[in-house]
């Protein structure tokens, strides 16, 4: 721990990021620009999330990283090791024990509690980006609350597929004001965004934006009156732990069309298996 300043970033950078976080918390859903630093990893691997985590970590924190719900994939393991080496913080895979959780594309199944911070890695923070390519124009649309275009996207979904086919990065409206991209979490997780006890911070490194949801914020998924929002998941129980209420990954297990569904949240699944729950595919 002598080679690095605590949590890798220098203190001035952390101060700058904390200011952006505080501003983001003060204006829920508003994208605060910040001077994103080069990190020792490629863009798209969570440079935004890592910077936000570095700015909020304290030596006493218990750190957890998940990638698509899993604690044991490359992205999760490398970021966890990064902070073990550069901050010397304790790490865990148990959701309830962690004080800071950095996540890519999932919200843990287990409800978070007060005092926890959930840090999201965000690839594209601008929900209107693929509808309106000009940044000057999207900023104006946010400031004037002109969000009709967002519904055009949902309209296109219904006209093409018969239902709202957007299944991840599903746009939400925060406290009746800003439309926000919740990062590419499945829309199954959208209802968890609102009224959450933990602080939610979103960091986009390449796009240089930070935004935030303070605890117990109202978050509403956009929809039509006659096509209401629906939090969907694969209609199966988990093959390993038998859970019917968790978000599932579909795994191909042979070349004869065999497949199984397992919880994407590995911590949740393992905890259930330890408690004696068993799915039909469990060994």
């Amino acid at each position: 721990m002598t080679e690095y300043n605590f949590a890798y970033l220098d203190e001035q950078t952390k101060r700058m990021i904390r200011r952006a976080i505080l501003k983001g918390l003060a204006i829920p859903g508003y994208q605060v620009p910040f001077a994103s630093r080069e990190m020792p990893m490629p863009y798209g691997w969570g440079t935004g999330g890592v910077q936000v985590s570095a700015a909020v970590l304290t030596p006493k924190d218990m750190f957890k990283v998940i990638d698509q719900g899993a604690d044991d994939t490359t992205n999760a393991v490398s970021i966890r090791t990064f902070f073990q080496r550069t901050a010397g913080v304790a790490t865990t895979t148990a959701t309830s024990d962690a004080t800071v959780i950095q996540t890519r594309h999932r919200i843990p199944e287990e409800p978070l509690h007060e005092g926890q911070i959930l840090v999201y890695q965000v690839p594209i923070p601008e929900p209107l980006r693929f509808l309106e390519p000009r940044e000057s124009e999207t900023r104006k649309m946010h400031s004037l609350e002109e969000y009709g275009l967002m519904h055009v996207k949902l309209y296109e979904d219904i006209s093409r597929h018969g239902h709202i086919a957007t299944s991840y990065a599903y746009p939400v409206k925060v406290e009746g004001r800003y439309v926000m991209d919740p990062s590419p979490i499945p829309k199954f997780d959208n209802p968890k965004l609102g009224d959450m006890a933990a602080i939610q911070l979103f960091g986009a490194g390449r796009e240089q934006r930070i935004y935030a949801l303070p605890p117990y914020t109202q978050v509403v998924s956009l929809d039509f009156e006659d096509h209401p929002f629906e939090a969907s998941k694969a209609d199966h129980p988990c093959g390993m732990c038998g859970a019917t209420d968790s978000y599932l990954d579909e795994l191909i297990i042979d070349d004869a069309g065999g497949r199984m569904f397992v919880c994407s949240d590995t911590d949740y699944c393992e905890a259930r298996q330890t408690a004696g729950h068993k799915g039909k595919d469990a060994a």
């Binding site: 519904h151 055009v152 309209y155 039509f224 009156e225 006659d226």
Partner: peptide
């Protein structure tokens, strides 16, 4: 439909 949605129409 864009203009309709821009003025608050929310019924598909």
């Amino acid at each position: 439909g864009e203009r309709l949605m821009a003025v608050g129409e929310r019924n598909y």
